[in-house]
């Protein structure tokens, strides 16, 4: 099968049970995306699929051969990465690649005016980057170290860059 990751096409011979996460980590040596829970509950495996953030542990590679996959290795000095460094948005770093990919996808959703559970009915005129909004929108990414307080300003600042 064929997978397109960070702009490069790869031809792979994979069992149909292989997830995108396992294809990245075990077959393409892209170990940025992490296997935290492997059940879509922690967000450590988050990548961008055709620009949208998704849990790569729940994607079968065979079903996503036409997609453009972007992993944390595909970003270089991205404003979200700089924000995490400047604000010390991590401790052990295990969840960080997932947090970064998720934040990139989240900021794109904000850009498009998508509402969240924190927004209420109408996103018009709301501050979609308030603390409550960022926390709600990033709730699919857990951090066992509890580095959340510094991620919030890191993400908000990246939105302006």
């Amino acid at each position: 099968m064929r997978l397109t990751v960070n702009g490069i096409e790869h031809d792979l011979d994979l069992d149909p049970r292989t997830t995108v996460l396992d294809a990245l980590r075990e077959h393409l040596d892209l170990t940025g995306a992490k296997k935290g829970c492997d059940h879509g509950q922690c967000g450590a495996c988050t990548v961008l699929l055709d620009g949208r953030r998704v849990n790569s542990c729940l994607l079968l590679a065979v079903a996503h051969q036409d997609a453009e996959i972007r992993t944390v290795e595909g970003f270089e000095d991205h404003p979200v990465q700089r924000g995490f460094l400047e604000h010390d948005g991590f401790q052990c770093g295990y969840c960080t690649p997932g947090q970064i990919c998720s934040a990139v996808g989240m900021l794109d959703e904000v850009e498009r005016g998508w509402p969240s559970a924190a927004t209420g009915g109408d996103p018009e005129g709301e501050d979609l980057l308030s603390d409550a909004e960022i926390r709600e929108r990033m709730s699919g990414n857990l951090c066992r170290c509890g580095a959340y307080p510094n991620m919030v300003p890191a993400i908000r600042e990246a939105a302006g860059r």
């Binding site: 879509g40 967000g43 988050t46 699929l49 949208r52 953030r53 998704v54 849990n55 729940l58 994607l59 998720s102 996808g105 989240m106 959703e109 509402p115 969240s116 559970a117 927004t119 009915g121 109408d122 929108r137 990033m138 709730s139 699919g140 990414n141």
Partner: peptide, 23 residues
């Protein structure tokens, strides 16, 4: 959906995470 069926938009946003809702 947001204008005519707010209950549906709100229910969807109350469920899962951004990543899961995208798939």
């Amino acid at each position: 959906v947001r204008t005519r069926y707010p209950v549906l938009s709100q229910a969807l946003l109350a469920g899962a995470s951004g990543q899961l809702r995208n798939m």
